[in-house]
Design a binder for these strands. Structure first.
Lengths: 243, 243
DNA sequence: TCTAATTATTGATAATTCTCAATGACGCCA
DNA sequence: TGGCGTCATTGAGAATTATCAATAATTAGA
């Protein structure tokens, strides 16, 4: 998993350059939407722009860094690792989401370990920069609130859909979630590996595998290309609603 | 559950009076901490103060009201009710928490059904009042953010502790949660009913009951007085960590 | 292209959990 | 105080899921 030295997780990131938020063409989707261009002219600490390959650890739970990450493109998993080594994925976050926001609050360190699931294109924003922007532009606070509300909605869905009911239903919900939130332009989505699925639903890898294999056999889930899949949404919804 | 007419859930609330936030002795614990007394002098819409008996429905998911509730004292459960009638409790919130915050964001209606678990003493704040205060006092936005971050932390714990692992571990985690967050001055906590425990952990009522009964037999959990119980924290933690 | 390593699938069995049913405990109220 | 209704507990069997083990499929390199 690349966490053997505690440092390796940075070496595989590709530095794209200093971020120029005032010229960012997707800013209206991001944390800094609605801030004027001028807001970024005198930043004390720069915002850097990176691309991380899949599997990269962006940060680890408990580590004391001071960066918020704004995801431009890609999927990041937030994982909790228990003392016994077992782990549970608490959220998947994609385009436009900001992670590490707990640092803006009470928290002195990250609450989760954040790992790139796909290639992830992101901006790394020092907490001090957020504070600077926030004091000049109180409106930023509203966007932080929106990010939090959004993540809270996702967390609630996680509890309701992925942590409730029989294994078959949970896995069906998971596939629906991938379809809904992470489909690409071609309408297909990456089918994450069984280990991650198990960590998302709280069931055993083998059980997840059985369900996915079953869906494939029933043609409810089928390969589009490479690791991209498509699914029969109605059929999966039907499975979910079978009490 | 008092939802037969869709209206009954209000009739049993006791109106305590207009809230006088400027004189509120627990304001520093609440959403409005740090706002100056003067902030409350010219409110367009008043803040009312109520006490609801246990079981009262504060609001229902999907309903279009426009109030945020700030809990002064008591415990509220946020519940999701599925189409098939099954329900899942997504959070318990207590003293100092604010609920219905989703109305400040995108949401046009509540995301959950909120039900008093104990007698609940709360202030009912019109959304318009929040907006008024927010425009005069941008700092309020920070407190809203803190509330959201706090609820996000709770949601994550819910996933990690109450929705992961075997039934015995989940129920042990649940008792630990009650002990940690809802113990009263006497050090004891109310043992919620099995139906709610089942809805919190996503397991069957009977299974929950078996676990609780087992803990009682083992004297890990014992009655203090009435429905107040105490527990052996170390023993429960031990149960949780048994892989 | 071939090999080794990883990941996914499948099988068999044990353990857990759900379901349905019955019994017990308790509080409420006439 | 006694009966009634609600909730908690317990039992038994069915269904589901976890676990351990083996095999297939896929991927990454050499």
């Amino acid at each position: 998993m690349g966490n053997e030295s505690g440092q390796t997780f940075c070496t595989n990131a590709e530095w794209i350059g200093r971020a120029h938020c005032d010229k960012c063409h997707i800013r209206q989707l991001m944390l800094f939407s609605e801030l004027p261009d001028t807001a970024f002219h005198n930043l004390l600490h720069p915002i850097d722009h990176f691309i991380y390959p899949p599997g990269s650890v962006l940060y680890e739970a408990g580590s004391h860094k001071a960066f918020i990450y704004s995801i431009r493109r890609g999927i990041v998993k937030l994982k909790h690792i228990a003392e016994d080594g077992s782990s549970r994925i608490v959220r998947l976050l994609g385009n436009g989401a900001a992670i590490g926001l707990e640092l803006l609050d009470d928290a002195k360190s990250y609450h989760h370990t954040a790992i790139a699931l796909t290639p992830v294109d992101l901006c790394k924003i020092p907490v001090s920069t957020i504070r600077q922007l926030e004091s000049d532009h109180p409106k930023l606070c509203i966007h932080v609130g929106q990010q939090l509300q959004n993540q809270l909605n996702i967390a609630d869905q996680w509890i309701i859909a992925l942590s409730t009911g029989a294994a078959r239903q949970r896995v069906a919900q998971l596939v629906l979630l991938l379809e809904r939130f992470f489909s690409e332009d071609n309408g297909a989505f990456i089918l994450i590996n069984r280990e991650d699925m198990a960590a998302m639903t709280g069931i055993a890898i083998e059980t997840v595998s059985r369900m996915i294999a079953e869906f494939k056999r029933q043609k409810i889930l089928y390969r589009f290309k490479d690791n991209y899949y498509m699914c029969n949404v109605a059929a999966l919804q039907e499975i979910c609603s079978n009490s």
